[in-house]
């Protein structure tokens, strides 16, 4: 007995020494805290693997839920890039009256160049318009058989600004030129597309809010079930003095892991969708002779998707674990 007490005494002294050391430098404490956290994280990972089917289900549910709003945001980014590409070529076409001669038309075009809200003005005579149209449409034979040229002469204008209001003001001014029959604003469909993009963005945000709320419940319920499964263990830990935070820690890691894995699977699914869509879109895009290509989430968006998953997972687990652990008493 004396021997044992001596050993414990020795151990106590060492503990005291170690405590003193820890007080002297915080590093010792941090390392052991890190070790404890690593151990708990590994334990949580092991538990996920131990019930692979239910873990996989939860992860896939999280992934699909995150993917839906993320896809909308991705679609929007693609729309934005289209808009950007075409906004650079926003044009106003002035169709000239048939009575206007070629030299008069050229003069109208040259005069417009002095306007500093106009970047460029190109005069296209009726003859030239017909030539271009017969080339691009492949209807050359049909057009040549016509007795007169049905196409009007035009001035194609690129505004110096992209601002919708300024472009509109410019087009109103252009409409008053006497030689102009009517004008066509090529940016109208861009405006419509822009409005659609705004709508998609709002729908995406709403969907994200709904989905994240839903995920809190899904993760909360998963955590609740695993707390129920480990009820006896929690009771024992409470009996020997474990705090709620200590008990909650493995569940918080479980939530975090679910979130990270769900987010990662969402990124992976997105890649598959992207590859499939780009394959089938190729033909359509070639018809428009555009080098447009659907873009994926990119590194930062993918990362933020995973981080969103992690945050939602952790927070969902946090809310659930403290609620349910409180209810488990010895």
């Amino acid at each position: 007995m004396a021997e044992w007490l001596m050993i414990s005494e020795l151990a106590m002294n060492k503990v005291k020494a170690a405590n003193r050391q820890n007080q002297a430098s915080h590093r010792g404490n941090d390392v052991s805290a890190l070790q404890i956290h690593r151990k708990i994280a590994l334990d949580s990972a092991k538990r996920l693997i131990l019930s692979p089917l239910s873990s996989l289900m939860t992860i896939v549910v999280i992934a699909v839920s995150l993917l839906l709003p993320a896809l909308l945001f991705g679609l929007n980014e693609n729309l934005q890039s289209i808009l950007l590409e075409f906004q650079n070529s926003a044009r106003i076409t002035l169709f000239l009256d048939n009575s206007v001669s070629e030299s008069q038309g050229q003069k109208v075009s040259d005069d417009l160049l002095t306007d500093n809200t106009i970047q460029s003005a190109i005069y296209v005579s009726a003859t030239k318009a017909l030539e271009e149209f017969s080339l691009s449409s492949g209807l050359g034979e049909v057009l040549r058989s016509l007795s007169s040229n049905p196409l009007p002469a035009a001035v194609i204008i690129t505004p110096a600004t992209l601002n919708t209001r300024e472009v509109n003001a410019l087009s109103q001014r252009l409409e008053t030129i006497s030689e102009v029959d009517f004008i066509q604003l090529d940016s109208q469909w861009i405006n419509r597309l822009s409005a659609l993009s705004d709508l998609i963005s709002i729908v995406g945000q709403l969907l994200a809010a709904i989905v994240i709320t839903g995920l809190f419940f899904i993760i909360g319920n998963t955590i609740k079930l695993s707390i129920e499964n480990r009820r006896q263990e929690i009771q024992v830990i409470k009996l020997v003095g474990g705090t709620d935070i200590y008990i909650a820690r493995p569940f918080l890691y479980t939530g975090l892991l679910f979130g990270i894995l769900g987010g990662s699977v969402a990124v992976f699914l997105q890649l598959i969708i992207l590859i499939m869509l780009n394959g089938s879109l190729q033909e359509l895009i070639q018809l428009y002779s555009s080098n447009f290509e659907l873009r994926g989430f990119g590194f930062f968006n993918s990362l933020s998707l995973v981080i969103t998953g992690a945050l939602v997972g952790w927070l969902g687990a946090f809310l659930a674990s403290f609620r349910y652990i409180r209810g488990v008493n010895p």
């Binding site: 060492k14 503990v15 052991s32 404890i36 830990i237």
Partner: peptide
């Protein structure tokens, strides 16, 4: 473990 005792001790 609960009271955060140094591992070796």
């Amino acid at each position: 473990e609960i009271s955060g005792f140094p591992v070796e001790d």
